[in-house]
């Protein structure tokens, strides 16, 4: 995989998705994390999904968020991307506040991101390669021919054959769609990549290939990754740090190696997949 040209054909924009360390340092101070979430509140009607969530993701770091189904993991990612508006709290990306941002300035922030949606969210009016090349052509104004080449490269990287590039999303299996979504997320070589359950629905071997690809994105391209997964083996493999979301808050966060020594009953129950424990009693209540 090659780091795609980030700003060709778009000379006025500057490099939107490769903010240099100096730049981020000047804006957010040297120690400031890439993403800084503070005291985030989000509810739907009377349902409180996030209530006072805090999370830091450092530059070049790979963080995995774990947590029960419906605990608000996907909602968190959407809040950071400005797709959902939180009621309260602050989200900073490279030291820049994104809550309440709109229009062009939000678009500029979004150029730093790549996102794999939980259900892939492929454009079904476009072929597979056009999906993958979308951010390059529409977002960066790259020539179609060149974008097409990069798209096919990325498809190979996620283990899909060249023929798939000319198929329609509706003709793909669930796991194939997921991988196309992954290829689309990394196509623009973004600075920050969100993976919402990247390996769900894949066979174990392909899951491992994808895990390695994510690690590669982070190590080789220097991207910052925030992933969601239920698969603990995958979480251990791709993450530098793990954070557990429960009851609208991060109840534990720490280096991946320490997750077995967390001494947190919720975390223990979750990573060992036990039905008995503090979480189950809450679910049954």
């Amino acid at each position: 995989m090659t780091p795609g040209p980030s700003n060709e054909g778009d000379p006025n924009e500057g490099p939107p998705n490769q903010a240099s360390p100096a730049e981020s340092a000047s804006r957010g101070g040297p120690q400031s994390p890439k993403i800084r979430i503070r005291d985030l509140y989000k509810s739907f009607g009377t349902k409180h999904v996030l209530s006072g969530m805090d999370l830091d993701v450092g530059a070049g770091e790979s963080v995995v968020v774990i947590g029960g189904s419906g605990s608000g993991k996907s909602v968190t990612l959407k809040c950071v991307l400005g797709l959902l508006q939180p009621e309260e709290g602050s989200i900073q990306v490279d030291g820049e506040e994104v809550v309440g941002l709109g229009g062009e300035s939000l678009e500029l922030v979004r150029r730093k991101f790549g996102m794999l949606f939980q259900n892939a969210a492929l454009f079904d009016s476009l072929t597979v390669w056009q999906n993958v090349a979308f951010g390059l052509i529409q977002g960066q104004g790259m020539a179609r021919r060149q974008a097409r080449e990069i798209a096919f490269d990325r498809l190979t990287a996620v283990g899909l054959e060249a023929e798939v590039g000319n198929m329609w999303p509706a003709e793909l299996s669930g796991g194939m769609r997921k991988r196309v979504g992954l290829a689309r997320a990394i196509a623009t070589s973004p600075d920050i990549i969100f993976f919402d359950e990247p390996t769900t629905g894949l066979d174990p071997i392909m899951g491992d290939v994808i895990d390695e690809l994510i690690v590669k994105c982070v190590r080789e391209l220097g991207a910052t990754a925030l992933s969601i997964t239920h698969d603990m083996a995958s979480a251990r493999k791709i993450s530098d740090r793990i954070a557990m979301l429960y009851d609208g808050r991060i109840i534990w966060a720490g280096p991946t190696a320490e997750i077995d020594r967390s001494n947190n009953p919720y975390v223990d129950q979750f990573i060992h997949g036990r039905a008995e424990g503090p979480i189950a009693s809450m679910v049954n209540a």
């Binding site: 979004r110 150029r111 996102m115 949606f117 454009f123 009016s125 529409q138 977002g139």
Partner: peptide, 25 residues
């Protein structure tokens, strides 16, 4: 039907994250 399906399958969110304005596109 087309735009509605794009909305409920998060394709409009995907457009937004790919820095393409759905109003424009």
């Amino acid at each position: 039907a087309e735009i509605g399906t794009m909305r409920v399958t998060e394709q409009i969110d995907a457009l937004d994250t790919l820095a393409t304005n759905p109003f424009k596109y």
